[in-house]
Nucleic acid binder design. Sequence first.
DNA 1: CTGAAAGCGCTAACAA
DNA 2: TTGTTAGCGCTTTCAG
Lengths: 334, 334
Amino acid sequence: MKKINIEEVARAAGVSTTTVSRVINDVSTVSEANRQRVLDAIRRLKYRPNPSARRLASGKSNTVGIVLPRFADMFHSFYVSELIKGVGSAVERLKLNLLLHVTDGRSFVDVSTVDGILFADIDGNEDQLDFVMNQDLPCVVLNHFINELPVSCISVDNRAAAEQVVDYLAKLGHRDIATITGHLRTPVGIERLDGYLKAMKARGLEVKPHFVQRGDYSGPSAREPAKRLLTHPDRPTAIFAASDEMAVTTIETALELGLRVPEELSVVGFDDSPIAAFARVPLTTVWQPLSQVGEMAVDVLSKFIAGKQRQPVKTLLGTKLIERQSCRQTWLER
Amino acid sequence: MKKINIEEVARAAGVSTTTVSRVINDVSTVSEANRQRVLDAIRRLKYRPNPSARRLASGKSNTVGIVLPRFADMFHSFYVSELIKGVGSAVERLKLNLLLHVTDGRSFVDVSTVDGILFADIDGNEDQLDFVMNQDLPCVVLNHFINELPVSCISVDNRAAAEQVVDYLAKLGHRDIATITGHLRTPVGIERLDGYLKAMKARGLEVKPHFVQRGDYSGPSAREPAKRLLTHPDRPTAIFAASDEMAVTTIETALELGLRVPEELSVVGFDDSPIAAFARVPLTTVWQPLSQVGEMAVDVLSKFIAGKQRQPVKTLLGTKLIERQSCRQTWLER
DNA sequence: CTGAAAGCGCTAACAA
DNA sequence: TTGTTAGCGCTTTCAG
């Protein structure tokens, strides 16, 4: 049982290896007759082109890499699997290989094995981005909108989402809407705060000084902010937390302080992570099209790789407010 | 700026390409002097061996593939990210590449690009396993213990975990312990049921006919079973659900029926998924070393690839019972 | 310990 | 439309 390579196939089909190569690569200039002969030989011999040889000869790997930060928290776990779902299916559809590189920012992707790279958020991986951009290897960064760099970005429209939240709350009659922000070192955190601020202003709602409290997305980080907000003499009637975990903590804090949710306090989260639906008070929150982000990222990347696209694209995807049971018409409404 | 390949390095170092290749591959038969010269040249020229060429020439890819089923439910999302965490770090440590293939069972991994394959559960991917085993490509399957096939398996010890749960409940004084099983088409579901049955017997506790109710892991699937159990004249005082989602549903059902949890009903889940800690009644459940499973799988696989291991290994990893607030000493205890 | 040379399997000018 | 023929960059006998 000798191993079959392109040459064997060529022999069996009575054509040259070039012709075989052509049919493998769907090059149009092959007569239908030869085409069938080759296809036939391939089937009979169960021939599978050797990927390494193709790569070496063509210089393309047909592989895209994705670098994932190795975070430990729940949201990222959710984020990662959603993203992978999208990326995975796009990659399958486009018949690309997916090289996964999970890192703490210290190890680098093997740039030479991929045609392009996806950064699933670059927090902690700025150096790699730099490196990749210098090699001018096609790349797109997800969930981290960078205006300053000529790099493609695909994210969720955090600003609009936050505005939506405020609008929603305002429609329920709330005027005293506070927020507990995410890490303000991250674009996402800043954007959500911005959106909040902007919408408050647009609606003519006053952002009292204590209305903006800082958290870092994690549940515990919201404890003190929530307490400050809820024990303040000028207590808000609604709180927009920049993550579900913080929202849940906020609800717990409220409950502990004897406040009923949603009767006396409305809370909105962000992410629609698994806990949202299972929380003590099912959480009204913002759903993000994470898997679409992944899918679209691959599509864009493949266009870059194919050379069909040169200008960086900056795309923002819309979110959806998922109403559950943590919000209610304010009792203050007249 | 011409591109630098092994030849350039050889020239710069004043040796043959063979020698360069030797130092790259850590072959011992190189004089220290030459070794240094080569290393030096490599550094100066910033030389990076071309992976495709190495693969083609050597026949090894230094890449392991992992095939993930494309499930949509929450547990799998959690499962996937935990696994990836472990696999990712092992792969990084061993300087391997990781090729990800997420599939619904219809598309196949590109076998020729990898030295070995990991199956993250084979449910729905039995054909691929067959195929891979026929190629005798090294592989190990995770979370799906197969005794019948000579293939390496690494899983969590579901049986022992279930026994532990029953023991725990029994120690709290419960005698009427029921279970809501997972899908009994899956090994995991069967094993958890087995463990339950075995432990009940060992403790001399009667498994009344209605004590075994079938679910399929999903939350909704536990609704009816829970209702049947809780409205039965001979109601159990404790329920062991084969998944956290079913456990949460069970608790909800109990609450709706006016039963207090844990005062009147103890519930134990399985998985320690994100919802466990956030559930209305924080859930006592079984934690599984998912990321260790991933890490160990890569280690084993790499031993197979290196030829240091021939016999399939079958490993079971221990779990841990996480006590939260869904269980209590039974009031029936005398 | 070292190097010459023959591939590894495929692609891509270039010619025909 | 087809085939000839160089490589792609590296590993690996095999001789020295």
